[in-house]
């Protein structure tokens, strides 16, 4: 089984639009949307949810106000600025509250509360789904607003996608990855067979590409690079491909700037499904080149 991951470094470069087209071109893939913080692939692929599970990760501290003596030890010990006095009660004692969004789930307040007034329940951080789409099974997820994007949900979506591929006898998992270089991206690329970085010919794209290629090198994953909207700044497109080569990555093609991407999105179609266009042709070439470039790593069993 082969697991191919599309990432971008900088957000908004067209990663998901390309992934949707790749899903249509791949035909027999299992799709995984690992951009769990801002998942958009489902807007194109319109999945029918077949299985829905909640995602529980870590814990969060909650003060039982009735038992709280207002001593403030929790607020003094919390290193995440999550606890503050919000009011005084009728006896004049301070009332403390924990900001759930800031709580790191470390338990320091819970273990050290003299009145044992702080509960520490498990935290539901989102949901994940296994669905059917017109281009094959899809595993996707939704992170609860403000939840910690720990990478664990990303790892879980990938694992479920591989499991789905094994069960449905499909030998390709296509992953729409998250932007950035932090924890969710690391979770999306570790042990993958190959990654494709979708970038754009801008100073930001150039800057972020170098960080994301360092990451690929760090985890020893073969990387390919696609310059989207290349004609906005052709010189920069050249520079980006040079940079890619010197970082050991393979340029696999360019996609032009055009309204077709957003138009297709509005019709809930991948660009390659929305009729013939030069943009669609560009995408077909990129997909074929990327597949060819990963042919050698294909025999390595994805873990």
């Amino acid at each position: 089984m082969k697991e191919l991951v599309v990432i971008s470094g900088k957000g908004g470069t067209g990663k998901t639009s390309l992934t949707a087209s790749f899903a249509a071109l791949a035909r027999k893939a299992v799709l995984a949307d690992c951009d769990v913080d801002a998942a958009d692939l489902h807007l194109i692929l319109q999945p029918e949810v077949r299985r829905r599970e909640s995602f529980v990760s870590g814990r969060e501290a909650v003060i039982r106000e009735a038992d709280c003596a207002g001593c403030g030890r929790c607020a003094a010990l919390c290193r995440f600025e999550a606890i503050s006095a919000v009011a005084r009660d009728s006896d004049g004692a301070r009332v403390f509250r924990i900001d759930s969004a800031a709580c790191e789930g470390c338990g320091v307040c819970t273990w050290n509360c003299p009145a044992k007034a702080i509960d520490f329940p498990e935290r539901t951080c989102g949901e994940w789904f296994v669905s059917a789409t017109r281009h094959g099974p899809m595993v996707h997820a939704r992170l609860a607003p403000g939840a910690e994007n720990s990478g664990k949900l990303v790892a879980l979506v990938r694992e479920q996608a591989r499991e789905t591929a094994r069960q449905s006898k499909r030998d390709l998992v296509l992953v729409d990855g998250p932007p950035g270089t932090g924890c969710p991206v690391i979770a999306a690329v570790t042990n993958a067979n190959a990654i494709l970085v979708v970038t754009e010919p801008t100073v930001s794209g150039f800057h972020d590409l170098s960080r994301v290629l360092q990451l690929a090198a760090h985890f020893r994953i073969p990387a390919a690079v696609c310059v989207n909207k290349w004609d906005i700044h052709p010189d920069m497109a050249d520079r980006i491909e040079d940079q890619a080569r010197s970082a050991g990555a393979v340029p696999v093609g360019r996609v032009r700037y055009g309204p077709e991407a957003t138009d297709a999105q509005r019709r809930k179609l991948a660009v390659v499904e929305a009729g013939n266009s030069p943009l669609a042709d560009d995408i077909r070439v990129v997909w074929q080149n990327w597949l060819d470039s990963t042919a050698e790593s294909g025999e390595k069993e994805s873990r």
Binding site: G151, K152, V154, A155, C183, I186, T190, N191, F219
Partner: peptide, 9 residues
Amino acid sequence: SPNSEGHWV
């Protein structure tokens, strides 16, 4: 030596 990168760091 380790033979896996781990699921994530």
